[in-house]
């Protein structure tokens, strides 16, 4: 009798899960809904904002904006389940707008995080979770009316580290082709040498 009760409850829970659709739980967003509002944002979206040139405050056109929703296994494990990305480019007013996570993409797993990446060649890219300058957590990202100020890429800054910071989705890789080549050339100069090259470099320095 007890076993039957247990199995019945189990079946009931599974049925409820199936009837409730595929939408799984959603983690608490680490960002606000709007700047200055005490209201917590929603990982589901939508997201919008404006991309500006830090030095002139003028809108930046054709900046690539990639939003990614990441799901993890239900049961709370920090084990990836799936992700979904949407990319847009800013218009002449520098504005971007990403829709809410489509219903068809609301997986059964835990919606763990939303990450916004903004890239424009010649500028330091933007991540919604971390700052590039000191790699500290970013606290100024907001869901609606977000303002992204991109600094000009400083001379001497590492392109390789910049690309690693941003991460590489297909859209980003397409937009950052010239920087990928620059990063590769940079590593040819700066990456640790092989043993023989070290010997050769030392010998050259000695003879010099």
């Amino acid at each position: 009798m007890r076993r039957c009760l247990g199995l019945g409850l189990a079946f009931g829970l599974l049925s409820l899960s199936a009837l409730s659709g595929c939408m799984g739980p959603v983690a608490k967003a680490p960002f606000a809904g709007r700047l200055g509002s005490g209201q917590v944002g929603s990982l589901l979206g939508p997201f919008d904002g404006q991309v500006l040139d830090q030095s002139t405050s003028s809108p930046l056109t054709s900046a690539l904006v990639v939003g990614t929703w990441a799901f993890e296994e239900p049961g709370g494990l920090a084990s990836p389940e799936s992700s979904y990305s949407v990319s847009v480019v800013t218009g002449s007013d520098g504005n971007y707008s990403l829709p809410s996570l489509p219903a068809g993409r609301q997986f059964a797993g835990l919606l763990r995080r939303f990450t916004l990446v903004v890239y424009k060649a010649g500028f330091v890219g933007y991540r919604s979770d971390l700052r590039f300058d000191d790699r500290s957590p970013r606290h100024d990202f907001v869901q609606r009316g977000n303002v992204v100020r991109l600094e000009r890429f400083p001379q001497g800054e590492s392109h390789a580290k910049h690309l690693v910071f941003l991460g590489s989705g297909a859209a980003l890789r397409g937009a950052a082709q010239s920087e990928i080549i620059a990063a590769s050339l940079e590593l040819q100069e700066t990456a640790p040498q092989l043993a023989a090259e070290q010997t050769e470099t030392a010998a050259a320095k000695e003879s010099h």
Binding site: S83, T115, V164, L166, S168
Partner: peptide
């Protein structure tokens, strides 16, 4: 396919 595209 499960990996987080936002992390690159």
């Amino acid at each position: 396919s499960a990996l987080d595209a936002g992390q690159g």
